[in-house]
Design a protein around this nucleic acid. Structure first.
Length: 408
DNA sequence: TTAGGGTTAG
């Protein structure tokens, strides 16, 4: 005690750290931890847990992991929730194997896993395409004396649907209904989407209609899944009827709904209707995403309206919603449709804006030119950048624009 | 009780 002042202890620091975390100032809170270290004040379990929770909530998973290691190294007791946060963070980053290692550490240290940690891991494995491992963990969880709940069944069913194992997924639906496990909208939307993608649209439709009887309110995910299934199998009129029903039912029509329908309408050459939906979406104040613009530009480019697509893209650019790669997507689509000349023209347009065509798009153009029988130009493109480059004539180097159409 | 799940395209 110097100068009559009381030196702050761990509790005072923890209180300040919690205050900063609550105010969303996680960085400031982390700085306080370093201050504690500099004055030789040992952080405790609460210090670390407060900081880990804040880092996890903000998605700063590497700091979360670092704190977990630090508390272990300092011989601090590591509570189960610390493991949950680390496993959850690693899984969210797609690192399911690393998450699994931490999970095993937790068990080795005598702590018991719970349903949420198991479910996090199961979902991460399913998303990495390791469905067998996900199912093994699911079995292990039950052997461990833990009862899976609606979320655990939901991630299993979602994983099975995504990997095309629909009959097994449907078996789980029957099981849950028979065993009084709640079947919620996410459960249904996974099945409707999976059935639709497998071409079993009528079954998808039946499930969708069944939801009312089963007292499960339909949300936009369920609607979007069925609208997508209908639009993709040439039943876009039925999809549009659902779109209207959605509004009557008070269900949000989202940017996904519009994107699905715009693609479906263009597919059936209903270009004007597709454009109308795009305008409706913009009028409603729904911000277009990269995917929605892709649907629109693919449709417009393939119906010969490349200029119109470019104009919309230019108008949207200031909104910042459309990625830099939008023009490249358009070149890709045109090449795929064999409209190489239009693709080249678009590429040249990008060059005139002072930008360069990236390697992968150049590859697409080269292959398209070769396919179209223009092997010479394809060869030439292989050896030069499209865009601003340098030309060497003897010892003189000069800056040139390389445009494709000039070469044809 | 703090932590776990979902859609557009290719």
């Amino acid at each position: 005690m110097e100068n009559g002042k009381i030196r702050p202890d761990v509790v005072s620091y923890n209180t300040m750290i919690k205050g900063y975390c609550k105010a969303g100032k996680t960085q400031k809170a982390m700085e306080l931890l370093r201050v504690m270290e500099s004055i030789n004040l040992e952080p405790d379990k609460i210090t670390y847990m407060t900081l880990m929770q804040a880092c996890y909530s903000e998605g700063i998973f590497d700091s979360c992991l670092a704190l977990y290691h630090e508390m272990g190294e300092k011989g601090c007791e590591v509570p189960p929730h610390a493991y949950s946060l680390v496993v959850g963070g690693l899984c969210k980053e797609g690192k399911c194997l690393e998450g699994y290692v931490v999970f095993e550490n937790m068990i080795r240290n005598g702590l018991k896993a719970n349903v949420a940690v198991y479910t996090t891991l199961i979902d991460a494995f399913a998303k990495c395409g390791k469905m067998e491992e996900a199912l093994e963990l699911f079995e292990r969880m039950k052997t461990d004396g833990l009862e899976p709940d609606e979320v655990s069944y939901g991630v299993i069913v979602n994983g099975l649907c995504k990997s095309g194992r629909l009959d097994e997924a449907m078996e789980y639906l029957r099981f849950c209904r028979a065993n009084k496990v709640a079947v919620n909208a996410m459960f249904y939307s996974s099945l409707i989407d999976g059935l639709g993608k497998a071409g079993r649209v009528d079954e998808a439709q039946k499930l969708f209609e069944e939801m009312v009887e089963k007292d499960c309110p339909r949300d936009s995910y369920c609607y979007n899944a069925l609208i997508d299934a209908l639009a993709k199998c040439g039943r876009v009129n039925e999809a549009l009827m659902l779109f209207n029903r959605m509004k009557d039912e008070g269900c949000d029509q989202t940017v996904y709904t519009y994107t699905i329908l715009i693609s479906g309408l263009f597919r059936e050459r209903k270009n004007e209707e597709a454009m109308k939906l795009w305008d409706m979406m913009i009028d409603k104040g729904i911000t277009p995403t990269a995917a929605s613009f892709r649907a629109l530009s693919i449709g417009l480019c393939l119906s010969g309206k490349v200029t119109r697509a470019c104009k919309i893209l230019d108008d949207l650019a200031p909104m910042g919603a459309i990625p830099e790669t939008a023009f490249e997507d358009m070149i890709y689509v045109l090449c795929k449709a064999g409209r190489v000349k239009e693709a080249c023209k678009l590429a040249d347009g990008i060059v005139d804006r002072g930008r360069e065509i990236p390697g992968r798009i150049r590859t697409v153009l080269i292959n398209a030119l070769r396919k179209a029988g223009n092997a010479n130009l394809a060869m030439k493109l292989m050896h030069s950048k499209i865009g601003i480059g340098y030309d060497r004539v003897g010892s003189i180097k000069r800056r040139v624009k390389f445009r494709i159409l000039l070469e044809i």
